[in-house]
Amino acid sequence: MRAVITVIGRDVVGILAEVSGKCSELNVNIAEVTQSVLQDMFCMIMLVDMDKCSIPLADFSDIMKKLGEKHGLSIHVMHGDVFDSMYHV
């Protein structure tokens, strides 16, 4: 199952490393990453594969949210089906 992680907020040193480190720790495979920095606003989208994740998606979502709060960023995890159903007929 695929999930999408979005990280939005002021650019913070090492945020990409920290999010991907947490993914690796929990056995979440990163399939695709896009990121852009507009002035000092940072926006990263990660498409990840959750099949082998060691914890349930709901708990993973909580961990990411807390990680974001620690850095003053908004980190949101969503099930990939949300986008498939909203944008594909």
């Binding site: 999408v4 979005t6 498409l47 908004s74 990939g80 986008f83 944008y87």
Partner: peptide
């Protein structure tokens, strides 16, 4: 195929 514009639009819909 997930489009990053769609992703950001959804996030904005939910958060803002």
């Amino acid at each position: 195929m997930i489009n990053s514009r769609d992703i950001l639009e959804t996030i904005r819909m939910i958060q803002d």
